[in-house]
C-alpha cells in the first residue's frame, strides 16, 4: 500500500483476532489468530476445512460468532460496507457473481452503484475489458462465455472498482489447466495484496505465505514448500 494512501494512519493489513465461527451447532473455524500483511497469501485445506468461511470473513460477508476481523483498522462487523469497498471478492462459480445480461453491463454495474460519471464508466469499462482480453465481447451475452472467460469477467467486474485487497475463493475449481494458468498469471501480476483460498498446490510457489487449515484450525503457516508438505501429510 502506498504511503500516500488516506489509510496510512491506520494499521495496514488484515487482522483476524481470536476468531471462532459456527453455523448453528457446527463450528467451522476455531481460535484463528493471524495478521496478513504479505502481498500474496494462500489458504489451503481439505474439503470442509473452513477455507471459504475464512475468505468470507475478510470482506465481512461472514461476521465471526467470536473474535474480530479488521481490514486496515476497519472492523468488518461495524464498518462492513466500507470494508467491502476496500476488499474485492471473487467467487468459485462466476455465474453466481455475474448479475447483468451482457459483459460490459456487468463490469459497469459496480461503477454505477458508486454513482461514477457516465463518461468515466465507459472509459473504465473499455480499459478493463481490454486488459482482461474481453474487449471483443463487450456486448456479448455473459451466459454464452466459456468458463475461463466467465471467471475473467468476474475478476474484471471486481477489479474495475480498484479494491485495495482482493480475496478469491477457489476461483479455479471449475477451470481447465490453461485457464487456471491464465487466471493465476493475472492474479500474480496484480498490484493489490491477494488472499487466495485454493486446492491448486502447483500454483503456490510464487506466494509469500501459505496458511493450512484443518478442521477449522490453523495447522501450518509459513513458506509455500513447508505448508504444502504439512498439507500433503494431512491428506495421506
Amino acid at each position: 500500500m502506498s504511503a500516500a494512501s488516506p489509510r496510512s494512519q491506520v494499521i495496514p493489513g488484515i487482522r483476524i483476532s481470536q476468531v471462532t465461527h459456527a453455523y448453528g451447532a457446527r463450528t467451522v473455524l476455531k481460535d484463528v489468530d493471524l495478521r496478513i500483511t504479505e502481498h500474496k497469501t494462500a489458504v489451503i485445506g481439505g474439503n470442509g476445512s473452513g477455507k471459504s468461511t475464512f475468505a468470507r470473513l475478510i470482506n465481512g460477508l461472514v461476521i465471526p460468532t467470536q473474535g474480530r476481523v479488521s481490514v486496515d483498522g476497519m472492523d468488518t462487523k461495524i464498518q462492513g460496507k466500507q470494508v467491502r469497498r476496500q476488499v474485492g471478492f471473487v467467487f468459485q462459480d462466476p455465474d453466481a457473481q455475474i448479475v447483468f445480461p451482457t459483459v460490459a453491463e456487468d463490469v459497469a454495474f459496480g461503477l454505477k452503484a458508486r454513482r461514477e460519471p457516465a463518461g468515466t464508466i465507459v472509459e473504465r469499462v473499455a480499459e478493463v475489458l481490454d486488459k482482461f482480453g474481453l474487449g471483443d465481447y463487450a456486448d456479448h451475452p455473459a451466459h454464452l462465455l466459456s468458463g475461463g472467460q466467465k471467471q475473467m469477467l468476474a475478476l474484471a467486474s471486481v477489479l474495475v472498482l480498484n479494491p485495495a485487497y482482493l480475496v478469491l475463493d477457489e476461483p479455479m475449481t471449475l477451470l481447465d489447466l490453461k485457464n487456471k494458468r491464465l487466471i493465476t498469471e493475472v492474479v500474480l501480476a496484480l498490484e493489490q495484496p491477494v488472499v487466495l483460498a485454493t486446492h491448486e498446490l502447483d500454483l503456490l510457489s510464487d506466494f509469500q505465505r501459505v496458511v493450512v487449515l484443518d478442521g477449522g484450525r490453523v495447522v501450518a503457516d509459513g513458506a509455500p514448500a513447508d505448508s504444502v508438505r504439512t498439507y500433503r501429510r494431512l491428506m495421506d
Partner: peptide, 15 residues
C-alpha cells in the same frame, strides 16, 4: 442460486 447471487451483490457493494 438466489442465495449465491444475494451474497455476490453484497460482496460487490450493494447493501
Amino acid at each position: 442460486m438466489a442465495d449465491q447471487t444475494a451474497e455476490a451483490l453484497e460482496a460487490r457493494g450493494l447493501d
